[in-house]
Amino acid sequence: MWKTFILIFAIPITWSFLGEIDQKILAYFVCACKVLTSRALQKSELDKAFTKLLEMNKLIEKKYRQEKISPNLHLCLHICECAFDYEPLSSFWCFSFERMNGILGSYKNSKRNIETELIKIMIENSFLDYFLTNCDDNILNTTLDIIKPRKSAGSLAALDDFTSDEYQNFLRLSLIEDESAYGTERFSRLLMKLCKETCLPNYILDLLVEFYDSLYEENFVPIYSITVPNNDIVVNYKIIQYGRLKIRADIYGSVQAARHEKSSYILARFVQEDGSIDIYSGQVQFYFEHTIYLKNS
């Protein structure tokens, strides 16, 4: 938008309001911008742009005195040099902080403890760059063995030694209606305080019943709908409510835990009937622990 204004509209709109020296200042600036914003540059054109910017600075100093020569006016004299070194301005960031934001934004992170994770990534990268540039091959190979990623822990460790054939065999077994390919283990998590015992409202209880129906393929009914004894599994109101959930080293917050509210924002995936997946953003209100008694338990 600024480029369009400077190159097309600046001179026709402002020309009649400017004095002779200011008209020359604007003309030099527009001429230099026209050269520097083009996608194909030649050294002769860069020299021409540098001359225009230099003359512009001289006129500003002549009319408005030296104290009006700001750091940006001085730095603009180095733009041509940058374009000569790094190609047209459209192919790289002109401001260092914008370039750094682009680099940091390309790093993968959990979207929770972003600052800490980015610092760790930069430290690891600088550590690797040092060894790649300052060590011979023998020392480098030994060093890379030391700093290579550690093996997974818990249930994830079982995947480290799997081959592609073993994965395929497991997938085949999972399609057989036999319990030999299935198993369970305790969920590695810790529900953290704030906690209290409370009751779910009816509309949430209905959603919980629908979830249990889909998960266990049994008949569940909310407790408020029971009028006569039956064989359905009753889902009661009572829950233990928590403010935070810890899974390994990560802590997930909620609205109920003000200090961890930053990590309460999530993207939830919902599988539709046609198999497509829709993603919705939301905020965790709280975590809860609920107990039901199945028929075979």
Rank of each mutant, 00 (worst) to 15 (best):
A153Y: 01
A158S: 07
D160S: 05
D161M: 02
F162S: 00
F162K: 13
T163H: 01
T163Q: 01
D165M: 01
Q168I: 08
L171Q: 07
L171F: 08
L175Q: 12
L175E: 13
L175K: 11
E177Y: 02
D178M: 00
Y182L: 09
Y182K: 10
G183P: 01
R189M: 14
R189N: 07
L190H: 11
L194D: 06
I204G: 03
I204C: 10
L205S: 08
D206Y: 09
L207A: 11
L207W: 05
L208T: 11
E210R: 15
F211V: 06
Y212Q: 08
D213C: 15
D213R: 15
D213N: 15
S214I: 12
S214L: 14
S214N: 15
L215R: 15
L215T: 15
Y216E: 13
E218P: 04
E218I: 05
V221Q: 14
V221F: 08
I223N: 10
I226N: 05
I226D: 03
D232C: 11
D232F: 08
I233F: 03
I233Q: 05
I233E: 03
V235F: 03
V235S: 04
Y242D: 08
G243T: 05
G243P: 02
G243S: 09
I247L: 07
I247N: 09
D250I: 11
G253W: 00
S254E: 05
V255I: 10
A257E: 06
A257R: 01
S263E: 04
S263H: 03
S264K: 05
I266T: 04
V271E: 10
V271I: 11
